[in-house]
Each structure stands twice: as structure tokens, then as C-alpha cells.
Design a binder for these strands. Sequence first.
DNA 1: TAGATTGTTAATCGATTAACAATC
DNA 2: TAGATTGTTAATCGATTAACAATC
Lengths: 214, 214
Amino acid sequence: MHHHKVSNAIIRRLPRYRRYLGYLQTKGIKKISSSELSELIGYTASQIRQDLNTFGEFGQQGYGYEVDNLYKEINRILGLDREYKTVVIGVGNLGQAITNYTYYYKIGFNIMGLFDANPDIIGKKFNDVEVMDVANLEEYVRNENIDIGVICVNRESAQSVADSLVAGGVKGIWNFAPIDLEVPDKVALESVHLSDSLHALSFMIKSKAEEYGE
Amino acid sequence: MHHHKVSNAIIRRLPRYRRYLGYLQTKGIKKISSSELSELIGYTASQIRQDLNTFGEFGQQGYGYEVDNLYKEINRILGLDREYKTVVIGVGNLGQAITNYTYYYKIGFNIMGLFDANPDIIGKKFNDVEVMDVANLEEYVRNENIDIGVICVNRESAQSVADSLVAGGVKGIWNFAPIDLEVPDKVALESVHLSDSLHALSFMIKSKAEEYGE
DNA sequence: TAGATTGTTAATCGATTAACAATC
DNA sequence: TAGATTGTTAATCGATTAACAATC
């Protein structure tokens, strides 16, 4: 296998390749060249070839890439050729949104359990999944061999939830709390800092106003 | 003003500086040096000084930076020293989560209106804001001088919603639909591709498994 | 075979880090 | 003044782009 370190820049582009290849598939398009894909996706043809060749030789000289095959390969590269046992901690609007989304699209992230600290919510069901007490999180994660924990609690509780998930043995954490969590290097951590994203938008609005005159 | 183009890398770090400076403020810490901040935030001291000097001279040789002042300056740089009239389109779980969040934290993004295409939801209220028909979006945005539109609809409707927002004259769009929207260059666009983020997590889990042995 | 397009090496560009003079 | 730390230039590093030989 490729054990050399893949740069973060490439990791961020991979899901985007996947997205466009999925789109091409639905259009019934069978082959595509790096320059055609460049036109569509907005990366240079050179970069596309470089990126893909990080993982293998998927094309054919003089022809291009088979869309179906490349889509399948990128799914495999991304680790989307398997299922992940997932729990969601914090069943507010955001936790529910995530739960609904993964449930509805059946995308390989199976929500096995929901957790919350609020007694009013514990015992309720969302999409047939019961809400359990967060006090039992670590035990549940260990017993059920959970792969991924999705943290949708507030900033104050986020690190202790992460600690429970790590202690229970998760492989990855998808964090929505506005804090930079500490986890061991062997645990994958992906944080979505929504307020950071909104603040970046604010900055860009200001920049455009200056550029184009307010 | 600084009209030179600020790199995307810096834009992404700015909200993070803000976050840590806010934290320092709550701790009552008055001054900080670039090396202390480096320890805390994880960027090199050199990078911190470079980043800040893109926007001005906020420190004092031999001393460091005043936390209160630097926090205020970064807020100003980010354009957070004003309010933004905001609308949310698509009042599902995610739209409600965004609405609640901005309502609860009173962070300068005032949700003036909610929009949806579903007649069952139109007319309902969330946090005292009424849900209107998306057919009236463009007119409302124009009449009310809305700054920002938050797109929480599905992929299929997202581009037409974006078109209405642009036609109505928004300054920025915060997009949560899994599609790369086309907007004029003068409109700021920030997309949060949740599924891309989840797929990146999947990739990292796989990489760590290979690195540490499965 | 000729044309097209990949895979891959080399060149360029931009971002990060190091170094240090300026200065509080 | 001496010590500390910034602001800023120079060096390094890594990522992107260009070029082209390989080859289908």
C-alpha cells in the first residue's frame, strides 16, 4: 500500500473528485480526459493527473479515464467501500440534521446510537434510533465496536465526550463543537468549525466590498 | 486600506486567532507574545507575526500583544464589527440549527427571514421569525437590503436559490448544499460541504489504520 | 501509423520558517 | 541600559504548473 503521507491539500480534493465523477455517472458519461475534468471541476489538468497518480495509474494514454472505474477507485481510496458504525452525541437540531442525512442517504455511516445528557430527550427515538444517556457512551462504544463518534454537543462538554469516545476505541471523530479537541494521533479527527466558516465569509464580504467599492 | 489579495490560507487562520484570543480574554489574560500564542494555537511564532503584519502593526517590541486590543482588531479585520441582515432558505433540521445558533449567541448575523418551498412549513415561526414562501425570496432580499443568504436546501434547488439571492443583491452566500454554486465574483461564497468533510474523515481513518496497523 | 492523452520529471510559484535588525 | 520580542527580509520548503517522453 501507499504508506507515504498524503498532503492535506490532496485529501480535501479527493471528495470533490468523487462528487463530480458521481455526477458524470448520472449523466451516463463513460470516459473523461484530465482536460475535460479540469474544465468541469476547476483544477488544472496537470494537478488532476498528479493527484490521481498519487494512488495509482487509473488512466490510459491517448484515451483518458473510465468514469465508472475512476469513481469506484476513488471510493476505495476514500475508504467508502465499507460501512462505519457511528454514534451521534448531542441530539439538538444539528445532531438531528446529521442523523437524518446519513439515514436518508444511506451512505455507509450507520447511526447505531444517539446520546445526550438531557433526561427529557433520553429514551426518545429519531429514525428508529433510541437516545441513550451519555454516561453510558464509553461502554457502548467499546461493546458495539463503534468506528466513528459525531460530536454535536456544546464547547464545554466536547472534550470530555471526545475522551469517552477515544477510551471506548473509536477510529475517528467528526467534531462540530467550536473547539480544537485533543485526541491521540492514532484517532482521526475532522472538525467542522461552523462559526469559523461564517467569520471567513464575513471577511470575504468585506474584502469584496473594498475591491468593488462599497 | 490593504487592497492586496489576502491568501486563502490566512483567511482560514484568522477566525482561529479570534477564537483563541476570545478564550484568553475570558481567562483574564492581558498580554501575550507570539511564542506563547504559538504554544497555545499550534502555528509557529513566525507565522503568527507574519499573519498579523499582513494587516498592521499590533504588537510592541520587547513586550508582545495586548489581548483585548488584538481581539478587537481581528474582529474588525474579519468584518465582525457590524451586523449582517441574514436570511435562511430551507427550514429543515440544518436550517433550524443555524437559526437557533445565530439567535442564541447573538453574534451579529441577524436572521430577518426564513424561506421554504413546503406549504406545510410556510407561515410557521421559529425563534419569532416567520417562514415565507421561497417564491418571494428575491423581492424580500431586495426590499430589506439583506446581506447574507444561508442555503440549506437540497442540491437540486440550491443554484436557483443562489440566483434569487444574487438577483436580490446579497453580498455573501453561506452554502450547505453539496454543489459548487456559480455566483458573480463580487458575491462572496462560502460553502460547507458536510459530505466532503465526512469523506475526508473516512480517508484519514483508513490512513491511520494503515499507519498503525489495523 | 498518427493522434491523443497519460504518467512523470523538471520548473515555477507561493507559503512557511528562520534569522536578525529595529525598537520598546 | 540590557533583555525581550516585534516587524521584516531572506532562506527553505512544499505544492502547483509546465513540459514532454512514454504509450495506448
